[in-house]
Computed example of a mutant assay.
Amino acid sequence: MPMNKSSILWRIECIKRILEHGPMSAREITEKLYHDYGIEKNERTIIRDLNDSLGKNGIRKHGEPAHRTKQMWTVSTEKRDRTRQPPDFNEPAALATLLAERHLEGIRHPQLMTKLEPLFKYAHEMLEHNAENRGLIANWNRSVEYTPSDHQLQAPKIEPKLFEQLLRDVFNRSVIDITYVRHQGDEPIKRRGNALGIVYRGRVPYLAFRYLKRNPDDKDFTAFLPISRILGVQGVVSDSQEVKDFNLAEAKEKQFNMTIGDDFTLEMQIFDSVRREIQDAHLGKNQVIRPIEGHPTIFLLQVDVPYNQNLVNWLIARSPYLKVLGPKPFRRMFYRDIKRAAAIDDAEFLTVPPREEKTFVSFEEEEKRHSS
C-alpha cells in the first residue's frame, strides 16, 4: 500500500532519506524537505519529529551541541536484525536489558556480547530519549551506579574456541576429557567427567566438573576448575554418566561461600564506623545494636550470621574496629588467626600452617581441640 504523502510516517521516511547523505541540523532538514519533497513544515515541528523518532527509526543525535537548535542529526545505515527493534519493547524492558548489560560487563564473552550489542544499543537510545521526559525508569540508567563490595580480580585470558567448546559441552552435560594444570608451570594432567555448568566468581570463570565414577559405589565428586587452567577439551563417546541430581545454584553456594559450619549468633563490640556500615544494611538476621554506657563511640552488636569464609574475611578486614565476644569457640579461632597473621611480620620468610591445622572449623571440632 503506498504511503500517504501528507502523513507523519512519510515525513519521517523522507527525513531518513535526507540524513543518509550525512549529519544535518533541523534547519537544514527542514529546507531539504521543502526543496526535495515539497513538504512545508516549520523547524519546531521537525525537531519534535526527530525527538519522537529518536532510537525508533535509526535516527540519532550526532554530537553534543551548545544549543538544541544547533543539534546535528544522523541516521544509522546498518542493516537491522530482529534484536535491533524488538516488538513491545518498553521502558521497563529497556531498563532490565541495561541492568543485564551491567551484570555481563565483567564477563564480556565475545560471542554473547556481539549478539546482544544491538539490543543494548537500542535500549540505551530509548532510555536516553525518554529521560528528557524525566521519567523514573528512563532516568535510572543515567542516575544509578553499582560498585562491587570487595576487590575484583582481573579477567584471565582464555582461548575463545576452548570456551565455546566448553559451553556446548555444558549445555549437553557431556562427558569430556580435559587437560588441566593445577598451577602455571605444572605438568598437565588429564581428567574425565561431566561438564555441568560455568560459574563466574567476579570476572573469573570456573567449570563445574563432575569426575567420572570408576566404580558404581564411588561417591559423586564435583570440582570447580578455573577455566584459565584448562589447556584442552576432547569429547568422549565411549563413556557416559547420567546426571540427574546436580543443582548448579546450590553447588555454587556451597563452593564459593565456603560454608564452615552452622549459622550462629555473633556477639561483638563495634566501633562507630562499623555501626554506620551495618546500621541499615544488616550483617545478618535479628540484628540488634545497643549503646555501651560511658563509651559513646563503641556499641554492642548481636546478630545471627552464616558461618562461612565470606563472614570471616569481612570480620578480619575490619578487625581493628571490632572485638569478637562470642561464641567462645569462634572467638578463640578468630584471634588465633589474627595472631598467626601478626606473627608472620617477625619471621624472615612466610610460614603457612598445615592444612590439618586450619583455623576455622566447626564449633564441635574446636571444642575438642581446646579440651585436649
Rank of each mutant, 00 (worst) to 15 (best):
P2H: 12
S6D: 14
I8E: 14
W10V: 06
E13H: 14
K16W: 08
K16A: 11
M24K: 15
K32T: 07
H35G: 04
T45N: 07
I46R: 04
N51Q: 13
D52G: 10
G58S: 10
I59D: 09
K61Q: 13
H62M: 04
H62Y: 11
G63P: 05
E64M: 07
P65A: 10
T69H: 14
W73R: 08
D81S: 15
R82N: 15
E91P: 05
P92K: 06
P92N: 06
P92A: 04
L98N: 06
R108S: 13
K115L: 13
K121M: 14
M126S: 06
M126D: 04
E128L: 13
E132K: 10
L136M: 08
A138R: 06
N139Y: 01
W140G: 01
R142A: 11
S149P: 01
D150E: 12
H151R: 12
P156W: 13
I158K: 10
P160T: 14
I178T: 09
Y180P: 05
H183Q: 15
H183R: 14
P188M: 06
R192D: 11
I198Q: 04
Y200A: 04
G202Y: 03
Y206E: 01
Y206C: 02
N215I: 00
P216R: 00
D217P: 00
D220C: 00
T222Q: 01
F224W: 06
S228N: 09
I230W: 03
I230Y: 03
Q234T: 07
Q234V: 02
V237C: 00
S238G: 00
S238I: 05
K244P: 00
D245L: 02
F246A: 03
A249D: 13
E253A: 08
N257H: 11
E267D: 11
S273A: 13
Q279I: 08
I289P: 01
R290K: 15
P291R: 09
H295L: 12
N310F: 07
N313W: 13
W314M: 05
Y321R: 08
L322I: 05
P327H: 01
A341W: 08
I344P: 02
D345A: 15
D345F: 14
P353T: 13
P354N: 14
R355K: 14
E357V: 07
E357R: 09
V361L: 10
S362R: 05
S362P: 05
F363I: 09
E366Y: 05
E366D: 14
K368C: 04
